[in-house]
Structures are given as C-alpha cells and as structure tokens.
Design a protein around this nucleic acid. Sequence first.
DNA 1: GTATAGTTTTTGATTAGTCAAAGTGTAGCA
DNA 2: TGCTACACTTTGACTAATCAAAAACTATAC
Lengths: 219, 219
Amino acid sequence: MPSATVENYLKSILKLSMECERGEVPMGMIATSLGVTPGTATSMMKNLQKEKWLSYKSRKGVRLTPSGKKIGMIMIRRHRLLETFLVETLGLDWSEIHEEAEVLEHAISEKVLERLDIFLGKPRHDPHGHPIPTKNGIIRRLPKKTLLDSLVGTKMKIESILDQSPEFLTFAQAKGLMPGRMVTLVKNEKVADTIELQVEKMPKFSLGYKTAQKILVSD
Amino acid sequence: MPSATVENYLKSILKLSMECERGEVPMGMIATSLGVTPGTATSMMKNLQKEKWLSYKSRKGVRLTPSGKKIGMIMIRRHRLLETFLVETLGLDWSEIHEEAEVLEHAISEKVLERLDIFLGKPRHDPHGHPIPTKNGIIRRLPKKTLLDSLVGTKMKIESILDQSPEFLTFAQAKGLMPGRMVTLVKNEKVADTIELQVEKMPKFSLGYKTAQKILVSD
DNA sequence: GTATAGTTTTTGATTAGTCAAAGTGTAGCA
DNA sequence: TGCTACACTTTGACTAATCAAAAACTATAC
C-alpha cells in the first residue's frame, strides 16, 4: 500500500499530466506542485519507479503507469467526494473544504468511501464543478471553453472553478460565480486585461484575464 | 501539534489510567497496548515528557499532565463520534467501525468534528455504549456493574460493551447483546466459569466469566 | 542475603521523507 | 562553436519512529 506521501505524489502527477498534455511531466512542475525541493522530487521519483507506479527518464520527466494512474484517480475521487460531503452534509464553507479533504482523503477507506458515495446520491461533480471519477477511474472531460473564449453579450452556464484558493473562492461565492449559475459577459477590455461580468440578478464585477481563464463555461 | 503517533500514545495512556486506577501507568502496559517493543515505549515517554504531556519516572511509570490528558480526551471524543457517524449515517457494521475510526480520528479537524457532532444531534454514547466526552473533555463515568455482579433471575439494561474485537462484536450483535437492550441472567455455573443469558425474546446463550465482565449493565 | 525471574532501559541500526548545497547537463543565444 | 543560465541530480545530513538484543534494575522466593 502506498503511504500518504506517495498518494500525494501520484495524485499531483496525474493532475499535472491531465493539465499540460505532453508526454512526460517535468521534474520542476512536480517539485513546485508538492512544495518540495527539486532534489526531494528526484529521489522520490526513483522510489516510485521502483514500485512500478511510473517511469522516470533522467532530465526528461515522468509518466504514470496504469497502476500509478489508478492510485492517482482514486485519490481524486476521494478528495472530490469528501468535498461534496463537507459542503452538502456538514454545511462547511466552499472555501475551507479543500484543506480538510486534503487530509481526510488519506484516511478514508474504500468501504467508507463507497457508503459515502451512496449516501450522497452518487454525485457527478464536487461543489467547485469538478467531475468525480467513478470507482473504476473513469472521469468526464471538462469543457475547454473559459470565460475568455466567449463573445461580449453572450450568456453562459458556469461549469467549473479551477482556482482552489480560499480567498478567490470566497470572492467568487459573493459574486455568485458558482457552478450551475448563468453568467453574462458584459464587457471585454483588452487593453485593461479585464472582463466585466454579471451573474443573474447580482451586481456586475470585473475579473482579470488570468483569473477569467480559470472559470470554465458552456453555452 | 502532536503527530498521529503521539496522539495514539496519549489516547492509550489516558484509557489505561482510567481503567487501572493507580498513580502511574507502568511502561509494560503502554508498550503492550500500543503493540510496540518496551524500548520504543521508553524512548517515546522521554519525548512526551520533553513536550510536557506527561511526567515519566524511570522504572515507575507515567502520569499525564493536564495538557496531555486534554489531547487524549479529544482523541477519544473524535473516535467515538466517528464511530457513531459510521453506524448511524453510513450504516456500517458494528464490528468494522473501530478500525475505521482509528485512522480517521487523526485526520478530522476540530471544525469538521463539531459539525459532525451537530449533524448527529450531539450524541452522548457511541454505538458500543461508551460515553462521548464533551468538547471540554468532560466524560460521564461508566457504571461499574458487570453481568457477573448480578443475581440469577434479575433483568438488567445493557449499558456498554467493552470488548472492541470484531469477532466478539459480531457474536454480540447476533445474540442481541447491545446497549439499551434488556438482558436476563438465567443461570450462573460457577464450576463451569459460565453464565447463561437471554436478551428479550431471543434464544438463550452462554458467556464465559472473562467475557461477561466486559458487559456493563444497570438495573 | 543471594539467586532468579521479570520488567525496564540502553544501544546501535534501519526506514521514509526531507533539505541544503554542490555538481552536472542541456538548450538556446551570440 | 562556445557560453551562460536554468533545470535537474547527487551527496551528505537530519528527524521521527521503530526494532533487536544486550545491559541494568527490582522484587520475590528461598
């Protein structure tokens, strides 16, 4: 069985490999995403390769094996189901659940998780709109369209919020920027690097381009 | 903050000190109860003393300080609330919850725990009948009367089952030996080291003296 | 008062995960 | 083609938690 540390490495590598679609995940990204020094990441990759969870090419990067991918996917499933439970059942705030789930995901057994899944009614998304993988590791692809890829005046449905930081989530909640809501692109100020938005009947507000790219939408 | 390992040591020492009422808890009991070698226990006690969680007298034993007792009590609260959640909400079996709670208790935050407490309706006992300490570490004393301290023919209410082993719990459940049920002492065979019992309308069955002492009752 | 059995402590070694800092490769620029 | 900057790897050291086995106590029996 993998340790909690290993579970975190595999989960992060899987997420990175899904985000930046190229063969290998480079070492630097792994070290940054886990908050460890590059040397630590390198030596850990050698261990993970020894356990057959990934293949590691020196100075190239890393690629998960099916068994490594499976563990990573299980961790994402646990994390997102736990987040859903914390919001839906216990009424915790949107912005605090990520940290809590980050710890609990290493402690919950498969048995308890499956009961939780049933208790929650087998949800397909977590509270941020992220798809929850099935028990078999099948995950819905997120739409690629962001707020920035839309035309002024169009009304869109918010699908997912990619930013996990409590600060942004608190802001987003206050503005109504949550999955399922309808949002209208009011203005797009290219020179100012800013868009103006309105969610249903709420007050208008502005978002920088960088942040706008972290909001996924569909028509 | 204490590590999960330290949390386990403090919880076990607190439980031992509540069971065997004498000044210090001896090293041997600590080592046995945590499943480590005596040497490991000794060296850990020195660390715990350095952190002011207990006072350790060489070859005498160990006594918790108020701060150590507090951590131990928090762990008992977490454990028992989690057990209650696993049975009441997720419908897990009586016999499997101990192991699950043993892991989760180190991962759940105070915030989530308090939400869980409210969600469960602030229960006073876990499914085995053990009292759940309050947030401030106040715990109801268990009655001291066991099945063995009763007279033949008397009907008693089951208060608590002290044995945690899955095997015994499965057996107890099958016989109806659960907190809240009424039980009658049918026979007491001193020479055979055995008592005969009947729970409400269920079939009679026998219990050894040693086991009978692990069932607490009240009139 | 000594021998013995049982408990506890010491010692030295091991493992997982980490960092700092020094060393090595490599890609792209000039 | 050679240089530089950045990315990556190596090395040596450290911490927490553990064990095995040897050593040192303590209590009890005789």
